[in-house]
Amino acid sequence: MDPELKNELSRQGIFTTTLEELYNWGRKSSVWPLTFGLACCAIEMIATTMARYDLARFGAEIFRPSPRQADLMIVAGTVTKKMAPQVVRLYNQMPEPKYVIAMGACAISGGPFKQGYNVLKGIDRYIPVDVHIPGCPPRPEALMDAFITLQKKIATQHLTGVDRPRHLNPDAPSEFIVPEFGAHDLEPPKNLKLWHITSNSSPKIPSTADNNEPGKD
């Protein structure tokens, strides 16, 4: 529908919508995160859900304690290599459509603990991340900004076509490789389908699995 006509109609008191808009509006307004915190960022995440910042205003009031009922995984904190397989397994056990917010420097890149022997250098090595939030830890406002960014992303997703989201594409994978504990490192150390780096001389922002939006870095 022509946006001007739609605007005019709404001014006259007639509300028009499309199935796609309605569907995305419903989805973006009830994104339920997984109760899941790894380190200090989780404290900020908890603060975000409490009365002062009140993430419930955006439809994320219920943190589900089971991945079966969750839509959003907020990776809040340092992902150790010992924890990484569990994080990926939890993500795999979430039903589609599912989204990931990498919260804080550690979840993005390893952060201040990057050179630690047991720190995964970014969760996007194993699972597709939709929104990255920098900060150590990010303030609740930053998490809310990331959440609104995610909602905007959901709102622009098309139900059909080439750029439809992963959950509507039967060929796109829903599960990702769960790394195994190896003798010296995780096996594999990264999921090459998600993690593309051409060369270190020209660092590129790693792309996510959903190619329809580069994400916020």
């Binding site: 939890l90 589609e96 459509p97 959950h167 039967p170």
Partner: peptide
């Protein structure tokens, strides 16, 4: 309408991420 994408990990017993 729900996008069903079953898989071995997804259908596995939920043990807080552990096998």
């Amino acid at each position: 309408f729900s996008p069903r994408k079953p898989g071995p990990v997804k259908n596995a017993t939920y043990e807080c991420g552990l096998e």
